[in-house]
Simulated assay, not measured.
Amino acid sequence: MKRIVLSQPVHAEVLARLQAVAEVVMNLGPDPWTADVLAEHLRTADGWMAFMTDRIDTEVLARAPRLRAVACALKGYDNFDLAACARAGVTVSFVPDLLTEPTAELALGLAIAAGRHILDGDRRVRAGYGGWRPSLYGTGLNGSTVAVVGLGAVGRAIVDRLQGFGCARVLGVDPMQIDARTEPVDLATAFTLARHVLLAVPLTEQSFHLVDDELLAHVHQGQILVNVGRGSVVDEHAVLRALNAGRLGAYAADVYEMEDWNLPDRPDSIPEGLINHPRTTFTPHLGSAVREVRLAIEMRAADNLLAALAGRSIDNPAYVAVA
């Protein structure tokens, strides 16, 4: 019987699907296993369902001699060394589409929360609400110029949702793709003109610290910057400097540099100044955290894993090992 490792807990339906055909070892979570504990489980594993807290490199693969398939229950696989997997003959799959809509929804939620002082308002009500006062005036989407950086699936889904908000202009920034509903501009122009900038950019060598001190030196005064792509697309220290200088009005994020496990100089935490800044709004990587969506993602990953272990074709390969 095949042996499958799940490095995070999954829904009961998914677990039952896998246990019907394989021996399954599952982390009961919510914290990830240590590297040594994971390696011990992978030592005799044929398949692995991996999650956002996981990474794959040559060292991990060297300690998993039986491993033949990895199913990533996520969209982006920049934490996974596909070249190392190819050399080891390990098939890698991912789930590219099911996270799109909920991530786009969250992007707009963060933009509204940051622009309309939702967190500060919540704190004030809980501290003792005495009725309306003329305070906490913010920035709305209606009548604003909004830029969407990255017009892949998530970026286009964000543009879909912006259609109902009465934006004055929707700018699109993507050298590879055009959305007819947006005005195509370059990155510097978007940051100069837009009241809101929503980042939906994958992490690549070219996009690492795409948002840096130089770009933020010329932002539209009081701009609301939202990141739902990858943490390291943004230089978090540069964002803090722009907030402290008063150029940037607010920063909202669901993703952080500390999560980009494959980067050799990855920080181990979010900058303290950013965490404590009054004009920041953060969520703990909730892009796909909708119950029905997570179940669908896990089930798709399980089907990919079982298909790969049985030698069948898979729907969403990142890399398919050649026997």
Rank of each mutant, 00 (worst) to 15 (best):
residue 82 L to K: 03
residue 82 L to G: 10
residue 83 A to W: 00
residue 83 A to T: 06
residue 83 A to R: 09
residue 84 A to V: 05
residue 85 C to V: 11
residue 86 A to M: 05
residue 86 A to T: 10
residue 88 A to L: 12
residue 89 G to P: 05
residue 90 V to K: 02
residue 90 V to R: 02
residue 90 V to A: 11
residue 91 T to A: 12
residue 91 T to Y: 04
residue 91 T to L: 12
residue 92 V to K: 04
residue 92 V to F: 10
residue 92 V to M: 15
residue 92 V to Q: 03
residue 95 V to S: 02
residue 95 V to I: 13
residue 95 V to M: 08
residue 95 V to L: 03
residue 95 V to R: 02
residue 95 V to D: 01
residue 96 P to L: 04
residue 96 P to C: 03
residue 97 D to N: 11
residue 97 D to A: 09
residue 100 T to E: 00
residue 101 E to G: 00
residue 101 E to T: 14
residue 102 P to Q: 02
residue 102 P to I: 05
residue 103 T to I: 00
residue 103 T to S: 03
residue 103 T to V: 13
residue 105 E to K: 00
residue 106 L to R: 03
residue 107 A to F: 01
residue 108 L to K: 08
residue 108 L to P: 04
residue 111 A to T: 05
residue 111 A to Q: 11
residue 111 A to S: 13
residue 111 A to R: 03
residue 112 I to T: 07
residue 113 A to R: 01
residue 114 A to W: 01
residue 114 A to P: 02
residue 116 R to I: 05
residue 118 I to Y: 13
residue 118 I to E: 04
residue 118 I to L: 15
residue 120 D to L: 15
residue 121 G to D: 09
residue 122 D to E: 14
residue 123 R to V: 09
residue 124 R to L: 14
residue 125 V to F: 07
residue 125 V to L: 15
residue 126 R to L: 13
residue 126 R to D: 09
residue 127 A to N: 11
residue 128 G to L: 10
residue 128 G to V: 07
residue 129 Y to N: 14
residue 129 Y to V: 10
residue 129 Y to H: 14
residue 129 Y to R: 11
residue 131 G to E: 05
residue 131 G to A: 07
residue 132 W to Q: 10
residue 132 W to I: 11
residue 132 W to N: 10
residue 132 W to G: 10
residue 133 R to I: 01
residue 133 R to T: 12
residue 134 P to A: 12
residue 134 P to V: 07
residue 135 S to W: 04
residue 135 S to C: 08
residue 135 S to N: 06
residue 136 L to G: 07
residue 136 L to W: 06
residue 138 G to F: 02
residue 138 G to D: 05
residue 139 T to Q: 14
residue 139 T to L: 14
residue 140 G to F: 01
residue 140 G to K: 04
residue 141 L to T: 14
residue 142 N to I: 07
residue 142 N to M: 14
residue 143 G to T: 07
residue 144 S to Y: 02
